[in-house]
Design a protein around this nucleic acid. Structure first.
Lengths: 226, 226
DNA sequence: CTTCCCGTGACAACTCCGTGACATCCCCGA
DNA sequence: TCGGGGATGTCACGGAGTTGTCACGGGAAG
């Protein structure tokens, strides 16, 4: 059954929502502020996110925009307080898929949850663009910028980054990368992968010695986190 | 990029829509009532119209019918309030191409916008004319000028430039160019493409040794940027 | 027949990739 | 806690592949 992450700081609403969703036999994860929510999205990859607009640490806006910028395509259902009309539209602008106004009818909310889950998203589609920190990458035009400055990247680097980003927050083995980027005919040593990772790091990471986005998982492979 | 006219009287929705469309790099025009909208359609000939049903001065119905009556074939995306079920049908009867019910998911709306534009202009519709720097090219008359001076260009050069310009800012591979310009029967070597690129550069680029508009993406193909 | 294009091939210059060697790090067992 | 072995980071180099450029010949159009 689907996993739903609820990010809401009001404990009573949170509990009510979680109970109702569990009663409908969804698996429910909860987070009480934006930062925890953000981490849980990465770590647990829920099938749906229910997100309150007003949150401690990081607002629903920010979280939404950040997640979409990082290529998260999980459907987001926004919770807004009554009268936040302008906020509604803004929230949707940032990439939410639907919203419900508090106080809301539980039946309506459940109906919307079902509707959103029904529109399944094709997973692992390689992204056309990527943003994280001060880096912007466009895979259509083969252009990259860091801190606004253009960045020279080679074809292999683009391909490798794209393959990693398509499975963000997930460890990809060297063999998988070789298959996806190099294909079956050309099959160089796995050390080749390491070299390209290294050059990606020097170009994209603010501190290449302590990579925050292109991480090594010792004995397994590499992992991209936005 | 496409020009979209949004006719909507609610300022918050209007702003949200405009922001979002601009973020998707559409050019956005706005109008707050039907009369202004009507004039803007005539004056600016947008590629798509997003039209609220309920409007001051002239309703979405009227505007739609009037525009269609005047031969305007621009795709129209209608915005209807929830529960105006009957109105939807009427809207479609009057010549709207699609509709979205308020409150709407902006992602869904954007998907519909893309779909309508795709239908209206077959993908990568080649441009009829092109201007950049001091260069003007007219593909209808097969005429080109640089700095006001007429420029001799061959047929293949026009075709190649047009194919590249149809996908501006996007890398096009040599094989794709061969398909689009040379077709399937005559299939010369990919080096032929390079030669024509070279001659285009000597004619169009101010400094052919350092091309600014006809760029090479090593190992991938060529890219035109205006 | 002349003229203009177009496609090809050859060559040079250049980019980028893969490899190996060495340094460093991480994990695990003693 | 320490040390060893495997895994990874880093660097430089040679070569393979890619592209820029030019000259030539064939063919179509006038």
């Amino acid at each position: 059954m689907s996993v739903i992450l609820v990010i809401e700081d009001d404990p009573s609403i949170l509990r009510g929502l979680a109970d109702n969703l569990r009663f409908e036999s969804y698996e429910v994860l909860t987070a009480a502020d934006g930062e925890i929510g953000c981490r849980m999205i990465r770590e647990h990859k829920p099938d749906l996110i229910i997100l309150d607009l007003m949150l401690p640490k990081m607002s629903g806006y920010e979280l939404c925009r950040k997640a979409r910028g990082e290529g998260v395509t999980t459907p987001i259902l926004m919770l807004t307080a009554r009268g936040e009309e302008a906020d509604r539209v803004l929230g949707l602008d940032l990439g939410a898929d639907d919203y419900v106004t508090k106080p809301f009818s539980v039946r309506e909310l459940l109906a919307r949850v079902r509707a959103l889950l029904r529109r399944a998203q094709p997973p692992n589609a390689p992204p056309d663009e990527l943003r994280f920190e001060d880096v912007e990458v466009d895979f259509r035009s083969y252009e990259a910028r860091k801190g606004g400055q253009p960045l020279e990247m080679t074809r292999k680097e683009f391909q490798l980054l794209r393959a990693l980003a398509a499975r963000a927050c997930e460890v990809v083995t060297r063999d998988e990368l070789l298959n996806e980027v190099w294909g079956y005919e050309n099959y160089p040593s796995t050390r080749t992968v390491d070299n390209h990772i290294a050059s990606l790091r020097t170009k994209l990471e603010t501190n290449p010695a302590d990579p925050r986005h292109l991480k090594t998982v010792h004995g397994v492979g590499y992992k991209f986190v936005a």
